[in-house]
């Protein structure tokens, strides 16, 4: 709380909007939970109702991650008393509580019943989408040895919600995990069609193409050199697009550095990437600075 209320509020606002809390390490989660608890009990005149609700939603999940189940239930009960049960976020909270207080099977049954009896005929597609996503995640855990089932479920949901970017990202990640690079690239390209300025997705496509090229190189198939160059060039194009959209994007410049290192005729791009990584080591946040320094040391 050393940066004043404005800085603290902006930090929480960014975390809640980007959903960063779903990806934090346990230590960072614990710190975030303590900070948020302190902030929510502080009177901030600039905190509007929308932000307040989003923060309580985040607090619920932080309590769940930290196994503070009773406190999470209290938050759910407060929100339910205010808004009723039939809201997308409250449906999800209820499923989460079923997962932690009972088990995944009970939660899966609840979702199936909700979809069959209400949501399939209701005019609330968002609740349907959110619950279906959670269902896929839980089914994925139950059937850990059958990735095909997960992909089939995702594709079925994508047919119903073809413009949901999170589903395309999830499908891309699943194909990537299976080593199916072309299918993964297709999914991320669909996402780029939906969000043409998503530089993170461009970098992801570049990353997969780069790995695909390396895999080609390792196989040493006859006439593979030409294909290797084509795939690398595609990877470079996507990485360049990502830094065209975001000038100091660490992953984008790292990919350019790595890709051009494999190409003989791109010395100029290699030097530019190195210059920009050097700039990141000077101006960016501490985490990016350390990463950029590490990459430069590895490459030099």
């Amino acid at each position: 709380m050393t940066k004043g209320l404005t800085g603290t509020r902006e930090r929480f606002q960014t975390i809640v909007l980007t959903k960063l809390y779903t990806q934090l390490e346990p230590k960072a989660l614990l710190e975030l939970h303590d900070d948020l608890e302190l902030y929510l009990h502080t009177k901030d005149p600039e905190r509007n109702d929308g932000l307040e609700l989003s923060l309580w939603d985040m607090m619920f999940y932080l309590k769940v991650y930290l196994s503070k189940d009773i406190e999470a239930t209290v938050i759910y009960n407060n929100l339910r008393d205010k808004f009723g049960e039939h809201s997308p976020n409250l449906y999800l909270m209820k499923v989460t509580l079923l997962q932690i207080n009972k088990n995944d099977t009970v939660a899966i049954n609840f979702i199936n019943n909700s979809i069959d009896q209400v949501l399939e005929f209701d005019t609330d597609p968002y609740s349907y989408l959110l619950l279906s996503k959670r269902l896929i995640t839980m089914q994925n855990n139950v059937k850990t040895n059958k990735p095909d089932d997960t992909l089939r479920h995702i594709m079925e949901l994508i047919e119903k919600f073809p413009i949901d970017p999170e589903l395309w990202w999830y499908a891309g990640e699943k194909y990537f995990e299976l080593g199916l690079f072309d299918q993964a690239i297709y999914c991320f390209e669909e996402l780029v069609v939906l969000m043409p300025f998503n530089y993170v997705a461009f970098a992801k496509i570049s990353e997969i193409l780069y790995l695909k090229a390396l895999k080609l190189d390792k196989k040493k198939i006859k006439n593979n050199k030409e294909l290797f160059d084509i795939v690398l060039q595609e990877a470079l194009d996507n990485a360049l697009r990502s830094v065209e959209l975001s000038e100091l994007y660490l992953k984008g410049w790292t990919l350019i550095l790595l890709i051009t290192k494999q190409m003989n005729d791109k010395k100029q791009f290699f030097d530019i990437a190195r210059e920009n990584l050097d700039k990141i080591t000077r101006v960016s946040n501490s985490s990016d600075k350390i990463t950029a320094e590490y990459i430069l040391n590895k490459v030099n």
Binding site: I100, D104, R134, E166, W169, E173, S287
Partner: peptide, 25 residues
């Protein structure tokens, strides 16, 4: 978009972090 890079935020995190597909358990 450099502001996001400087503060260490992914502005498309609500998609790329797959927040609705987190394995709670």
């Amino acid at each position: 978009s450099n502001v996001d890079n400087l503060v260490g935020s992914d502005p498309t995190g609500y998609i790329t972090y797959l927040p609705n597909m987190v394995d709670i358990q």
